[in-house]
């Protein structure tokens, strides 16, 4: 898969795990696991990228006597998911068109 496309998809994937409620690294990995296997280093890089681009914010909270980082989606992040849904409809249209061409061969 094209690297830029994959990056974009993974970004949306991570954003959607915190769409409804804030979450922390390990929980995000677990939630995504049935759909996509992601290493810790990949997740870290994506979270950092999303933080820098203002798609999410990070805050620290005490949990069980230690500090844990939680990630919260911003309006820009929610907007990114909506854009993705729109883009994906277009991609699916193209896909269907391509597949029809394949089938007629």
């Amino acid at each position: 898969m094209d690297i830029q496309m994959k990056k974009g998809l993974l970004d949306v994937c991570v954003l959607s795990t915190i769409k409804n409620s804030d979450s922390y690294g390990y929980e995000m990995l677990k939630n995504m696991k049935p759909y996509i296997e992601m290493s810790e280093s990949t997740l870290y890089t994506i979270l950092k990228r999303l933080e820098l681009s203002g798609m999410l914010t990070v805050y620290t909270m005490e949990h069980g006597g230690r500090l844990r980082k939680y990630y919260h989606i911003t309006k820009a992040g929610l907007g990114r998911i909506e854009d993705f849904q729109e883009e994906w409809r277009e991609i699916m249209d193209i896909y269907r068109y391509v597949m029809r061409e394949e089938e007629t061969k």
Partner: peptide
Amino acid sequence: ERLSFYREMIDDRIEE
């Protein structure tokens, strides 16, 4: 930052 990320990941697994 990366090391603390891994620390947290390990702690969460232990907690589980």
